[in-house]
C-alpha cells in the first residue's frame, strides 16, 4: 500500500511536468508568445505526428542514429583496444599515455573544420568527428579498469596453468568490463551531442539538419518537433545502453543488489 505521503509526492512530481506543459500550451494559445518564439505544444505534436506518418521523421531519425552509432562503435572498438594496450604494452603505453591525457580535456568539436578539410563534408568527416569526440573517455576508463584488475586473480590463474590468452579473455576483460561500460556510457551522450552539431553545421539530413533547417525557414514548429524527436532518441539510446550493461554484467556484484 502506498502511504498518503508517497501519493502526495507522486502527485507533485507529475504535476510539475503537467503544469509546465500546460503553461507552454496556454502561453501560446493566449498569445503571450508568438508562434515563432514558442509554438503551442499541440501544434508541435501535430507536426511530429504528421512527419512520422509521412516517413520524413523516421528517415531523419535513422540518419542521425546511424551516424551516431557508426561513430560510437568506431570509438568503442578502437578505444577499448587502445585502452587495454595502454596498460598491457609498455611501448604503446609510453607513446599514447601523454597523448590521451592531453586529448581528454580538449574541446574536440573545434577540429570540425579540420575534419571537413581532410574528409569532405559528407559522412566520412561526420562519423570520424563523432568517433574522435567519443573515444577519449572510452580509452581512459578501459585503461583504468584494466589497471585495477586484482593481481591475485591473474596470479592464481597463472599458477593453475592458464595461457596468457585465456587470462586476457577470461579474467582481465571480464574484470575490467564494468569500467569499460562506464566509459561507453559517458561516450554515448557525447556522440549524440556531436552528431547533432555536425548535422547542424554541415547539413546532409538527420534531425540536427531538420532543427536548424526549420529555424532558417522561420518554421519554429519544425525546430521544436525536431528537439522532441532527438530527446526521445537520446532517451531510448541511454536506456538501451543501460540494458546492455545489465545484460553483460548480469554475473557481476553490481547486478545482484
Amino acid at each position: 500500500m502506498a502511504t498518503i505521503g508517497q501519493l502526495r509526492r507522486l502527485a507533485i512530481r507529475s504535476a510539475s511536468i503537467l503544469v509546465l506543459l500546460l503553461a507552454w500550451e496556454l502561453s501560446a494559445r493566449l498569445d503571450f508568445t508568438t508562434t515563432f518564439h514558442l509554438p503551442a505544444l499541440s501544434l508541435v505534436l501535430q507536426r511530429l505526428w504528421a512527419t512520422a506518418m509521412s516517413g520524413d521523421l523516421g528517415l531523419a531519425a535513422m540518419q542521425t542514429l546511424l551516424r551516431a552509432l557508426a561513430g560510437f562503435c568506431l570509438a568503442a572498438v578502437a578505444g577499448v583496444t587502445l585502452g587495454i594496450l595502454l596498460v598491457r604494452n609498455r611501448i604503446v603505453g609510453w607513446f599514447f599515455e601523454p597523448l590521451v591525457s592531453v586529448g581528454l580535456p580538449l574541446p574536440k568539436i573545434a577540429f570540425l573544420p579540420l575534419f571537413v578539410l581532410w574528409f569532405g563534408i559528407y559522412e566520412q568527416s561526420k562519423v570520424l568527428m563523432i568517433a574522435f569526440s567519443a573515444i577519449f573517455p572510452v580509452i581512459v576508463s578501459t585503461a583504468a579498469g584494466t589497471e585495477n584488475v586484482e593481481r591475485q586473480l591473474v596470479w592464481s590463474a597463472r599458477s593453475l596453468g592458464s595461457s596468457e590468452r585465456a587470462i586476457f579473455w577470461q579474467i582481465i576483460l571480464p574484470a575490467a568490463s564494468p569500467q569499460i561500460f562506464t566509459g561507453l556510457q559517458i561516450a554515448l551522450p557525447t556522440a549524440l551531442i556531436v552528431t547533432v552539431v555536425c548535422e547542424m553545421v554541415l547539413g546532409g539530413y538527420g534531425l540536427g539538419a531538420t532543427i536548424i533547417g526549420s529555424m532558417k525557414m522561420m518554421d519554429s514548429i519544425g525546430s521544436f518537433a525536431g528537439i522532441i524527436a532527438i530527446a526521445l532518441l537520446g532517451y531510448a539510446s541511454i536506456q538501451i545502453m543501460g540494458l546492455v550493461r545489465r545484460y553483460f554484467l548480469g554475473w557481476h556484484q553490481e547486478s545482484q543488489t
Binding site: G208, I230, G234
Partner: peptide, 11 residues
C-alpha cells in the same frame, strides 16, 4: 537529461 544540449542552440 537525454536531450543532446547542442540541439537547443537553434531554440
Amino acid at each position: 537529461y537525454p536531450v543532446p544540449k547542442s540541439a537547443l542552440i537553434p531554440i
